[in-house]
Design a protein around this nucleic acid. Structure first.
Lengths: 346, 346
DNA sequence: CTGTTAGCGCATTCAA
DNA sequence: TTGAATGCGCTAACAG
């Protein structure tokens, strides 16, 4: 190609539905049907049409389709922690379930405040979405109301301990925290801290579970709940463990809000010459990839994050379909994975 | 609200441009202009219109806008490793630059093969995107050609060692690998392995750099290049280090394709009682959050991933704008961050 | 600076 | 089973 001949910014001759229709000797609507509703077109005609579609390289104009049908085929995902490690697997699940469908996903990362989430949800709603996935965070009334009135299926994901506006899939974070805390008790730890980042809805549920179990054992000490309102990270875990041991040298274990913090705590213990699990026990949350490979391996609560994403999309698809509607609330359950970081005799 | 009164699946009375126009006593196009091109409307009228827009809660219909203007305001991102740790920061950069604009992002995770990438790029192109961001992988001719002819700005990100079809932003992976390998040599390591995952374009460039430096030193041994064709992870790092030490007990360092593998290698060394950095040196790549907090902290090559994402969007916006066009090729540079995992005297 | 006209590409009526 | 007419909501191109 001669340099300068390059036609940037200039739309290629686009193949439209009527182009295909002409070439196939039918009307546009028939082509449309052959594509979206093949069974409404006689087999021979259908095949002929699909062949022309193929030959001409026709690709539907989604904007036109959305405008005409009031159905964008878009699923909006709103999450405050779109780019957190733990959300990656959720995204994978979402993508895998969407791939074989003709839906598309659009992600939006929100702030943690209700206004920003409302803004994004409204934005998606203005596009006639096929569905909405929301990482339920707050229990904000305005959000609830908006989701309840939404003209499309809505799935709130991650936690199921609250009645959803429409549907929900996830686990019960309070229960999970109870299980983890009880495990630490059973291993003989007594001064068990809670190390965390921002106090989102799920974190608060976990605090409740942690607190309930320790109170029952007569071992709850609010001073051992340490957190900093920031995106959690390995660095934060180091910092929090440092603070904990500085203020409470007798602290002998930590239930961490997630594995990043647990890993940071582990490193910090190593740095301070504390033996994990003998001197200090560590339990994480999420069971990320690395938890099982750390040294010692980190006990964690496995959350079926991939499945949550997968099921969320599945529920939307089934809610929109004609078959049996999906259950409104799916508790996928968690699993405590015991590993070296808490492997101490009671 | 009375239960059962809930109107799901039924579009709320939508406010359209002409609704606003009527209420404001102007024509639709004027409202349109007040929104998109405020300077083409007289200030008093503009304010009046914007007030009505606000009051009525008007939200533009993006599908209609896309259809009418042949500009969807959409930037498509195609990457095979959308959900890898190292891509998270890129996404953050992308989102941050997009937020203040009126563009939207849509991500698509591709397979590593050219066909799948072509499919997704074509899909985006059929939507009149405002721009395309592609994690350049292969140097495939068909992809090159497609991107070259694309009627919108295209930015290939991550590596800049190849002439881009349109624009590119990233670093030179080969140079980065040379720097890292040289560092290991300077620290006195002699049997330096390369541990990696799949051999994508960038990984091959890094291999070249690693090989060049070692050959120059007369220390290159192809047997020390270990990789498994899978998404890299901490577990893979453990596995590869195990294999390496089993086959080559004299290996004394590893340059890892990324920090996940480096972390796995570190854990595996600890498990085997190998001292890092005395018995074995480890250098990672990317400088993820945790590298600096590990014990010992992991030497790594800092890649400005956030900036890459940010700049990519910026280049698209500027290429579409009327101002000076952005440079075609932006090398953001890397930085070797020396830490404990290679802190051995030469 | 503002309005009129026309049409983007498709799908939803309806009718045949 | 197929087709014709119509309009989705918006903006480009022109006119005033």
């Amino acid at each position: 190609m001669i340099p300068g001949t390059r036609r940037r910014r200039q739309r290629q001759d686009k193949v439209t539905l009527s182009d295909v229709a002409q070439n196939a000797g039918v009307s546009a609507i028939t082509v449309s049907r052959a594509l979206r509703d093949p069974e409404k077109v006689s087999p021979p005609l259908r095949e002929a049409i699909l062949k022309v579609v193929e030959d001409m390289g026709y690709v539907p104009d989604l904007a036109a389709r959305a405008l005409a049908s009031k159905n964008s085929g878009l699923i909006g995902v709103v999450s405050p922690a779109l780019t957190s490690h733990s959300f990656l697997a959720v995204i994978r699940g979402i993508e895998d379930r969407v791939r074989p469908s003709d839906l598309r996903i659009q992600y939006a990362s929100s702030d943690t405040n209700a206004e920003d989430q409302l803004r994004l949800l409204r934005f998606f709603l203005s596009q006639n979405p096929a569905g909405l996935i929301h990482v339920g965070q707050i229990g904000d009334l305005a959000i609830d109301e908006l989701l309840r009135r939404a003209p499309c299926p809505v799935v709130e994901i991650m936690d199921v301990s609250r009645q959803p506006s429409d549907m929900a899939v996830g686990i019960d974070h309070r229960l999970a925290a109870e299980t983890a805390t009880r495990h630490l008790l059973e291993r003989g730890y007594r001064r068990i801290a809670l190390l965390g980042g921002a106090w989102d809805f799920r974190a608060r549920r976990r605090l409740e579970g942690y607190q309930a179990v320790l109170e029952e054992a007569g071992l709850f000490d609010p001073a051992l709940v340490l957190s900093i309102d920031s995106q959690s990270s390995v660095g934060l875990g180091c910092h929090l463990l440092g603070r904990l041991k500085a203020e409470f040298p007798d602290a002998d274990a930590a239930f961490c809000h997630n594995d990043d913090i647990a890993l940071g705590a582990l490193f910090e213990c190593q740095r301070r010459g504390l033996s994990v699990p003998l001197d200090f026990g560590i339990c994480g949350f999420n069971d990320l990839d690395y938890a099982g490979f750390a040294f010692p391996a980190i006990t964690s609560v496995r959350v079926p994050r991939y499945e949550i994403g997968y099921r969320a999309v599945d529920m939307i698809i089934r809610a929109a379909g004609s078959g049996a509607p999906p259950p409104k609330l799916v508790d996928l359950g968690y699993q405590l994975v015991q590993r070296g970081s808490t492997a101490r005799q009671a």
